[in-house]
Amino acid sequence: MDFWDVVAFFLEALLVFVVATTLFDTLHWLLHRWENSKIPLLRTFSSWHWVHHKFLGLDMQINPAYARQNIWLHVLPEYLTSMVAIALFLIAIPWQPVAVVAVVRTVMFVMSLREEGLDYNHMSMDRVGGKQGLLWVNNNYHAMHHVYPHNFFSSFANTFDLLVGTTCQIEGRRFLVTGTGGAFGSAMVKALEKRGAIVEIAKSGVDFSAGSYAGMDEKLTRADVLVLSHGAKTDDCWNANYVTFRDLIDRFTVIGKDRLMAPEVWALGSEVEFHGDMGLEELRDYSSSKRAFAARARQYYRSDDLIYRHIVPSSFTSAMGKGAMSAETAVNIALFFITRGVKYVPVTLTGLAVLNFFRFRYANNAGDETLSPAE
C-alpha cells in the first residue's frame, strides 16, 4: 500500500463507521418517537428501549437490577443494527475496510458484555460537565441524553444530532433572559416560549446593576440556562457589556456548582470583537468593553464548570438603528446553531463573525480585559 492507498482505506473505514452509527442513531430516535405510537408493536419496541434509560436513569446513576435486560434489549440490538449497516457497504467498497470496522465494533460489543453494559458513556456520574464534543460523542455529551431523553441521540459520531438539530433541550427547561427590552432579547423570549421553554426575565438597573446582584440569586437559582442579551453602545459600556456579564456568569456558575448538570450560559457578543473601533471615537468604549468580555468569555468557553455559548451577530435592526437582518432572524439563526450543539455561534451576513472565531478561539487577547478603565 502506498500513502494514498492508506488514506483511502482510512477514509473508507471512517465512512463505514460514521454511516453505520448514524443509521443506528436514526433508529434510536424512532424508538423514542414510537413511545406514543398508535401501533402496539412500535410501542413495544419503544418500551424495550426505555429499559436502557432505567439502567442509567435521569439521575445518572446505574441501576444494576436492569443490567441483564439492558444487554438483551439495548446493547445487543445496537450491535446487530450496526453490523447490518456495516455489511451493506460490501456492495459499494472493498471488503477490507468493512471488515476492520466490523471487528472494531465487535470488540466494543464484547467489552460491553464483559462489563455488563458499562462503558465510557454508560457509568454513574455525580456531575455532567460542560466540555461536550461537537463532532464526536464523549461521556458528558451522552449523559445529556439520559438527563434529557428526547434530545442528544448520537452515540459515537455526532452526525444525526447535527443534521436533525437535537443537541439542545429547550422544551421544559427554565431560561432567565436579560435585555428583554431590546430587540434581540425580546425576540429570544418569543422564540424560546414558542419552543416550550419556561422563561423568566431580568432587567438591568432593576434586578441587577454593576456590583449589585443580590436580587438575582433567587432567579439564578431557578434557571437552567442564563441568556445575557443586555448591553449598551454608548453609555456606561464597560459595566453594561463587560462587568455585569462577567459577574452574572460567575455568580450563576457558583450557584450551579453542586447541580447534576453544569449550568448553561448564552451570551451576546458582537462583530466589533473582530474589527475593533476602526478609528471611530463613537465605537471606542463599545469596542473595548466587547473585546474585554470576549477575552473573558474564552475562559468560559473552555471551562468544564459550565456550558458556554458565545453568540456573535452582525448588525440587526433594533432601537439603535437599521441592520442587515431583523432581530427575529438573528435569533432564529442563533437557535439553529445552538440546537446543533455549536458553542461559538456566528450570526452573520458579512462573514466577519465567522472570521472572528479564530480570534476568539486562538488569539492571545487576554490583554483586552485592560483596554477600558477598571471598575
Rank of each mutant, 00 (worst) to 15 (best):
F336V: 00
W266K: 02
N356F: 01
Y301V: 10
L228M: 13
A65Y: 09
M123H: 15
D217V: 08
A366H: 03
T253A: 15
I311A: 05
G211Q: 08
D247M: 07
L56C: 10
N365P: 00
A292L: 09
G165I: 01
N364C: 07
N158Q: 05
S270Y: 03
T329V: 12
A295C: 11
S154R: 00
A366I: 06
F24I: 02
N356Y: 01
V101C: 04
M188C: 12
F252D: 07
W238H: 14
A374Q: 14
W136N: 06
L306M: 14
M108F: 14
N158L: 02
A327P: 04
D235S: 13
F10C: 13
Q299T: 11
V243W: 02
E218F: 09
R298Y: 07
P94N: 05
M144E: 08
L162D: 05
I62P: 02
F3V: 11
E171W: 04
L306D: 08
V75W: 08
D250W: 01
E193I: 11
L248E: 02
A102P: 02
R291S: 07
H53E: 10
C168H: 14
R246W: 01
H28T: 10
N158D: 01
H53S: 12
S37R: 07
T339F: 02
A330N: 04
E78P: 00
I249M: 13
L56Y: 11
P97C: 05
H145L: 03
Q299Y: 08
A232Y: 00
K203N: 14
V101K: 03
S212P: 09
I333L: 12
N138G: 08
A330V: 01
T21M: 04
L15K: 06
L27I: 14
F10D: 03
V6L: 11
R68I: 14
G256K: 01
I201R: 15
A363E: 05
I170E: 10
L283Y: 13
T106C: 00
N239F: 06
Y66D: 10
D277E: 14
E375M: 05
V100S: 05
V147P: 00
A183S: 13
W72S: 14
G215H: 02
F252W: 09
W266Y: 15
A262E: 07
S315T: 12
W136D: 01
F184Q: 01
S47W: 03
V110D: 06
R246Y: 09
S326A: 02
L192H: 07
H53M: 09
V137T: 07
T178N: 07
V331D: 00
N241H: 08
A324P: 04
E273A: 09
L88I: 07
Y301Q: 14
F357G: 08
H32I: 00
V128S: 10
A223R: 05
H49M: 09
G133L: 06
F10V: 13
V206H: 03
P97I: 00
H142R: 08
G341T: 01
Y66S: 12
P263F: 04
P94F: 03
